[in-house]
Amino acid sequence: MKTLAPSPGLITRIGAPISVMVAAVLALAIVACALLAAWIAPYDPTDLASFELINAELPPAFTADGDARFLLGTDNQGRDLLSAMLYGARVSIAIGGGAVIMAATLGVILGLIAGYYGGRVDAVIMRVADVILSFPTILLALLVSGVARAIFPGAATAEWAPLILICAIAIHEWVQYARTVRAATMVETAKDYVRAGKVIGLPSRRIMLRHILPNVMSPVLVISTINLAAAVLTEATLSFLGVGMPPTYPSLGTLIRIGNEFVFSGIWWIALFPALALVILVLAVNIVGDWLRDRFNPKLRVKR
């Protein structure tokens, strides 16, 4: 491959197309905004005492009736929408990331065990996975949060809701990891380097973690980026359905749900801006994830 530029810069060295670069920059920007929400947000959207109902449902600043204090307008409580979105993105990304980490850990461990031991162990783990897969993601998540709320009264509070959401999402997502890792593990287990480890007498745990795991990790990293987008979306859906984050500590999904009630009254901004942010985030992460998947696939990589 020849580069036209005299000295190849960072972009050409990574070898990613422009669309992927743009997506990566956008995703990083949203994550950075979310992380720095406490510093860059004009108001604190969690401080209920600061809201004034007189400011409720103000349109964005750039419209005719806009108020310069609220760049993207306010919601029905008089909460600054921009601040709510910045904090909301933080909640969404934290829950999405948490769910991915939890699902990946669970899925990789179970996949390794199933693929390495095979037989009955494998059958039990994979049948459980099949059963879980036969439930739609949302239904299962609704079930988990519903049950959690019923038996644990504090489940709907801002402290506990994220944890419940992470569990509710991860309980469905680990299956994909388990299946991928199991298949890769079965291939690796048949290879001579694993047999050599067994002949040396290494314990199974050590063979799995030290020898097989590094060889099955690349698909896991790729699935994770795609699942991150899916998890953020699931969280938004759950919050939209009313079983996610409480209105006092809104995620992007909660904001969309609140805005949804007002869309037909001509108050469009409450739903639109959070929805836009969500779409951009999910799309950007998905594009990067897709590219990573192709990049780590040796069959696609050899193409000139």
Partner: peptide, 23 residues
Amino acid sequence: IGPLRQAIQMIFQDPYSSLNSRM
């Protein structure tokens, strides 16, 4: 276990798969 396991070792046919490529 121990010395008994050490006593018998093996060499494999395919030298390309018998060494872990990540180590």
